[in-house]
Amino acid sequence: MLKRKNMKTIMILLLSMLFCCSWNAKAQTKETLQNRIQMMTKESDPEKNVVSMRNIIRDYQLDSVKNSEDIDVLKGQVALSFLKAGTFLKFEIYIGLIRNKFNQTSYLNMAADQLFRAGNNMDYAQALAQKTVELYDSYKDDPSARPDGFPLEDWNRFMRMAAYPYYETYAAILHENRDDKTALIFEEKALKGIDLDDAMSSSITLYSTLLVSQGQEDKAREILMKLDPIQREGNDTYRTKIAKTMFTNQEASNFSLLDLHGKRVTLADLRGKVVVLDFWATWCAPCVASMPAMEKISKQHPEVVFLFVATRENGKDAALRVASYVKMNKFPVNALMDQPMDQHTELFQVASAYKVDGIPTKVVIDRKGKLRFSTKGYSSDRELINELEAMIAIAKEQ
């Protein structure tokens, strides 16, 4: 069976559609609607989330027509909290109240994925995943499903992106429930039109596993043989391209932060080693999705120091929240807590020093303490690993 921890990034496509996980360094200190919604994701009592939803609608004077998208998100969060509490009837009630079909499909898929990752109620997870793809198929070619003001070209691209996680989730659950024949059909739908080079490693693993289970060993071998040798960090053209983005003679900003055990880590003390900084947050879906790839590359390079700077983790329980995430996932190690600047609580010291305007951001520093690379965002494990491999190799040569 496919390990559940490998089913890791299919949700970032949906989450990035519904929320913006990139933040501006000049963010206003005023509490925003997004902040209120994020607080709902951390609430374990679904009835309290019902109250929060009503209060948000009242406080922001959300109109059922003009602000229907925001209200859909609120209902989706309430539905997921009932799912997590095991109250499936109320989950279905609130899912049914979501007005936009795309939003409804997205939250259905999130629900199926959450049950899958928890390994609980797999029959119900399969039913939700099946309902997801059936609902998606019912409107994906329907022009009337496109929201007003949504450009047609963007909508078509939007729908193609959505198909990947919807079909992928269903295929993974079917595989877990030992229906590989049907799982293969939907995994191929998930990968249709996608360059396998850009597919998640978990997708390739699942696809090849399903092919073998259905007697298509040759096709599985062909795919793996094609993908395994692709290590662009060893490709001169790719290395040249990456080298062009290198900072030439810029001193890396020194910092001194505490790790989760209270130990102080200072950049100056790491002179003589290549250092990789990963700016992340527990609430940032792409940051979390990139962690398995970061774990893999950090294990491949024990000579490199990887420091995971948790930034913009607001609130007095920030360190506890990060520690809880690390304990649950057993990664990242070397997690450091960035600190807010005294007069601007939305600005954090090290992130500001490195001009980080969106997360995840990876920074590579050479042995002499020079800033060499800074790269923002996450799209796939393969791209991230190849990019960092090239950057680390170049930094070692400086």
Rank of each mutant, 00 (worst) to 15 (best):
M1C: 11
R4H: 11
M7I: 05
K8L: 11
I10H: 03
I10F: 15
L13V: 06
L18T: 01
A25T: 03
A27L: 01
Q28I: 10
M39G: 11
S44Q: 15
S44E: 07
P46M: 00
N49S: 01
V50W: 11
S52H: 09
D59Q: 15
K66L: 10
K66F: 10
N67C: 14
N67Y: 10
S68D: 09
E69K: 15
G76H: 03
L80V: 04
T87G: 14
I95A: 02
S106N: 04
M110A: 12
A111W: 13
A111G: 07
A112G: 07
Q114R: 07
Q114D: 11
L115F: 11
R117Q: 10
R117N: 07
M122D: 05
D123K: 14
Q126R: 15
L128K: 01
L135M: 09
A145H: 03
P147M: 09
D148W: 09
G149I: 08
M159L: 11
M159E: 05
R160D: 02
R160K: 12
A162F: 00
Y164I: 05
P165F: 03
A172G: 04
L174E: 10
R178L: 14
D179P: 03
K189M: 14
A190L: 10
L191V: 07
L191S: 00
K192Y: 13
K192L: 00
D198M: 14
S201A: 13
L206Y: 08
Y207N: 12
L210N: 15
L210P: 06
V212P: 06
Q216Y: 05
A220P: 08
E222W: 12
I223T: 00
K226C: 08
T237L: 09
R239P: 01
K241G: 02
N249L: 05
Q250P: 08
H261E: 13
K263A: 09
R271I: 03
G272P: 02
L277S: 09
D278F: 02
W280C: 02
W283M: 06
A289L: 03
S290E: 06
A293W: 12
I297L: 02
S298Y: 09
P302K: 05
E303P: 01
V304Q: 05
V305F: 00
F306E: 04
F306H: 06
L307E: 13
A310N: 13
R312Y: 15
N314Q: 10
G315V: 03
D317M: 13
A323D: 01
A323N: 06
K330M: 12
A335H: 10
L336C: 08
D342E: 15
Q343H: 07
S352Q: 15
V356P: 01
T361G: 07
V364P: 00
V364Q: 14
I365E: 07
L371G: 00
F373R: 10
S374D: 02
Y378D: 03
S380P: 06
R382S: 07
R382V: 08
E383V: 13
E383G: 05
I385F: 01
A390V: 06
M391R: 07
I392D: 00
A393Y: 01
A395L: 11
A395Y: 05
A395Q: 04
K396R: 03
